[in-house]
Every structure is written in structure tokens, then in C-alpha cells.
Amino acid sequence: MVHITVKLNVSLRKYRSSLKINEEMPILIPSDTTLAELLEHILQIPAEEVAIHMVNGIKSDMDRILVEGDKVAFWPPVAGG
């Protein structure tokens, strides 16, 4: 098992409504878990609601395997001006 943290941002926080803005949620996940698995099976957030996913601040592929200490963050579609 590996320790990671997850941040859910903007509208995605509705899936864990107790999370505060920008709060990191620690979770222990099986080793070899991919970002896609994390989203679908552990967090159970519909993939179509997620536009941007980052691991340690870097946009990553969904088949990336998460390792100890990874900081994962998800965003719905957002933009600024």
C-alpha cells in the first residue's frame, strides 16, 4: 500500500463535501494503482466531470501509476482571463 494525498477542486468537492477548499485528503491505496483507477474505483468520480488531473503539479496521463507521497489533484473544466 502507498500513501498519497488527493485534492478535489471547485465543483468536484461535492463528492466529498466535508473537504475544505484546497484540503489534501490522505489515502492509502494499493500499490500499482493508476490515476484512472483512483478516480473510478476509489474516489468514484465520473471521469467526464474531470478536465484536468495533476500529480505533483504536473498534468499526467490517466494510466500513470501512483507512488508513495504523490500529490494528486483533480479539476473540472475551468479557465480564467
Binding site: N9, V78, G80
Partner: peptide, 23 residues
Amino acid sequence: PISFGSFRAYGTASLVNLINEMG
């Protein structure tokens, strides 16, 4: 989802955490 979703609901400031997360 951006034009009618996030701009309308959250405004442009919804970017703050995202750009910050990226460093």
C-alpha cells in the same frame, strides 16, 4: 462546460488553485 459552466458559476478566479497547484 467552461463558458457556461465554470465562468458562470465560479468566475475566472476558479483558476487560482489550479495554477498554484502547478507551481
